[in-house]
């Protein structure tokens, strides 16, 4: 829900190399049914944490919808899901 500007500064500060997308009106968050009403700062709507792995055809290969906001997918979980997908699709 942060603006591109905030994302740019945060990305620089933390040294991340991947893309940060901004969804200020929560349109994509709504389309993915991930809106958490009133849970953001000052009762604003915010995304619930969620992670998806999408392959090059746009198909979802792995989903993680946490039951506790503090608990998020770990990087190794995502990599493991990616490797499983690689094995399942013979090149």
């Amino acid at each position: 829900m942060d603006t591109p500007d905030i994302n740019r500064r945060q990305k620089q500060k933390l040294g991340y190399t991947y893309t940060f997308l901004s969804d200020p009106k929560a349109e994509v968050i709504r389309r993915y049914d991930l809106l958490h009403r009133g849970a953001g700062p000052k009762g604003t709507d915010i995304a619930r944490p969620a992670e998806f792995l999408v392959d090059s055809t746009g198909t979802i290969r792995w989903v993680n919808l946490t039951e506790n906001i503090a608990v998020r997918a770990r990087p190794e979980q995502v990599l493991e899901a990616f490797e499983r997908g690689e094995q399942a699709t013979p090149q």
């Binding site: 997308l21 994509v28 619930r48 792995w62 039951e67």
Partner: peptide, 25 residues
Amino acid sequence: LRQVPPSTGAPRVGQKAPEFTLSDQ
């Protein structure tokens, strides 16, 4: 911290991820 919406309508494994266009950083 466990009061998370159920997100029953979230895209599932095997489905196409809904297309979107957003601004990057």
